[in-house]
Design a binder for these strands. Structure first.
Lengths: 353, 353
DNA sequence: ATGAAAGCGCTAACAG
DNA sequence: CTGTTAGCGCTTTCAT
């Protein structure tokens, strides 16, 4: 593969001139420029980004770490990120972690070794993670995505109050026996906040919050577990009339389990999701859910990261203030309650108050 | 940031020894090794991958180019790719093109400049693309994903016969007036092949294939267009009883338009998709579709690419045969017909034969 | 406007 | 087992 030296030779100039011709054409006499371009074309010269990156200050690489792409909420967000970097000449280095903190550590280290200019991360649990502090201490440009940690650089919705509003809607519809269904609570700061929101709404209505029904995401037999749990509740005479699922994907799985258990949604059971996946609107009945603007979350996070990166031009030492202090704190985007066919009034037979 | 020289100094050895300690520990005396490791840890040494990559033969980077992540079929495939490279120490450089051939060119060039070890590509139209030939001529390791081009290195299903089987199922169910709905045919080799499959099935049943209904993917008013088209067909007394949609996402959009137009699925209109998105099974009625094993497609493509890359160890010149000639041809994975609630017998009133 | 030269951080001969 | 050395391909002073 032709390198810059070959081009220089063919164009009859020095490699410095070739470099200039390619990066700052205005510094080169038009005639020389033309010769260089011709030579480069003839040799099918393809600049080696590694050489430039090793030499230069920036790589133009952005590290993106997400839990999974199996949940469209993350794919959507990635679309927003892509949209934001489009045209900036930057590229994305992508890693998924399957919500595994061990993999999170490795992935970040890997991205850093590749000398990414900045990091866009969705952590399983940002609040209990020393990782972010370490990154900040090292001066790595970084924005959290979806993680909702007030004092950190992140972009998200206010999960707690969003969840509270969703649950309030269930209560308004007449439900009193509402249970939150979620993946492992300890593994996700978002789920935890949404559970707090659930509790807020219940208490505000004078109801007693119930323990969340935690269900293993990774287990294959999810439907099975849901049915068992329902049967148990049935026996206890404590079957809820509404389920608040900590995300839409889970809601879809739960609805399937309900169907298989012979329960109709919303006649026998109301279901509320969280995320606002596009597919929810295509279902019938349509999925009621708390909508977060996923694409916008991704887009804003990327934009903030770029601003953060650009704000660091040649700064050093203690005298340096961040270009914009707001980049160091949370950006909370507005959520929205999407009413849908999966929520209705509770069945009369359950109306035991 | 500490570099290898700092570590060497602190460990009291040469940089070569540090390099060895890090990459081939067995070549270093345990005692020295320990000193190096200690020094590296104390200095929080983070090897610069760029240096290594510039020096070495490989970068460990895999370039992935997909049309969009908005369609889960590609996100699924990406999951398969990730699964395949997991543990190999490779990283993914991801680009999406929005089906734009111009962006495809740029993206590939960009990935090549980053010196990726290989490319995993889904092109809008692989058959009419000189790009792939150029890549092959340059000796770039590359596998096409989803593109179904018999003579090229690719992993896909047999779109033509898969579509034919799907349509045959519609015919078996009693349909004779079947129309294929698709995005711009000229923009996708898969859609074209699926249309051929549709024609095969129609002709095999003695029916006349109808022109495809092409609908712009990017237009916002998709539902609108579908309704107009339906109304037109209605006026002509030629409303089909079944629609074969070239992909599931399109099928979902079409079903929504049908619903808005007051048509019930499957009572008034049967719908068949293509892709096998997981969400299709969660709908009610469940989406009948031609299932391609998306995750497996991604996984196999990545595995073949890795084999291709590894098969190139130090080979050169004309005396070199590919490690496995099969990597240069298509790998066709089995598809599957998923029956679903969206397909039923045609309404009696349409039974005019 | 152009060239010469000094590395960016690392690996891999080649010598000991 | 370890050190010395020569680059990988590029950008960027510093001269001219």
């Amino acid at each position: 593969m032709a390198d810059i030296r070959d081009v220089a030779q063919r164009a009859g100039c020095s490699i410095a001139t070739v470099s200039r011709a390619l990066n700052s054409p205005q510094l080169v006499r038009p005639e020389t420029l033309a010769r260089v371009q011709a030579a480069a074309a003839e040799l099918k010269f393809r600049p080696n980004a590694l050489g430039r990156q090793l030499r230069g200050e920036r790589t133009g690489l952005i590290g993106v770490m997400l839990p999974t792409l199996g949940n469209p909420v993350f794919a959507d967000c990635l679309e927003g990120i892509e949209a934001a970097i489009d045209g900036t000449g930057r590229r994305l280095l992508l890693v998924t972690t399957q919500y595994d903190p061990e993999r999170e550590r490795n992935a970040i280290e890997t991205l850093l070794q590749q000398r990414v200019d900045g990091l866009l991360l969705t952590l399983a649990d940002a609040e209990h993670s020393a990782l972010v502090d370490d990154l900040a201490a090292e001066g790595v440009a970084c924005q959290l995505v979806y993680n909702d940690a007030p004092q950190r650089p992140c972009v998200s919705v206010d999960n707690r109050s969003a969840a509270a509003q969703g649950v309030a809607m269930l209560i308004e519809a007449g439900h009193r026996d509402i249970v939150m269904v979620t993946g492992a609570l300890h593994a996700s700061d978002r789920a935890k906040r949404r559970y707090l929101g659930y509790c807020d709404a219940m208490q505000a209505a004078g109801l007693t919050p119930l323990p969340a029904f935690e269900i293993d995401f990774n287990s294959g037999a999810r439907g099975e577990r849901v049915r068992e749990w329902l049967a148990q509740r049935e026996r206890d005479g404590a079957r809820p009339t509404a389920l608040f699922c900590s995300n839409d994907l889970l809601a879809l799985g739960v609805m399937r389990a309900l169907r298989e258990a012979g329960l109709r949604v919303p006649d026998d059971m109301s279901v509320l999701g969280f995320d606002g996946l596009a597919v929810g609107e295509l279902l019938s009945p349509t999925l009621a859910t708390v909508v977060q603007p996923s694409v916008e979350i991704g887009r804003h996070a990327a934009q903030r990261l770029l601003a953060q990166i650009d704000g660091r031009d040649g700064r050093t030492g203690a005298a340096t203030a961040p270009a914009d202090a707001s980049l160091g704190h949370a950006l909370i985007l507005p959520h929205e309650i999407r009413r849908g066919g999966t929520v209705a009034a509770p069945p009369r037979t359950k109306d035991r108050h």
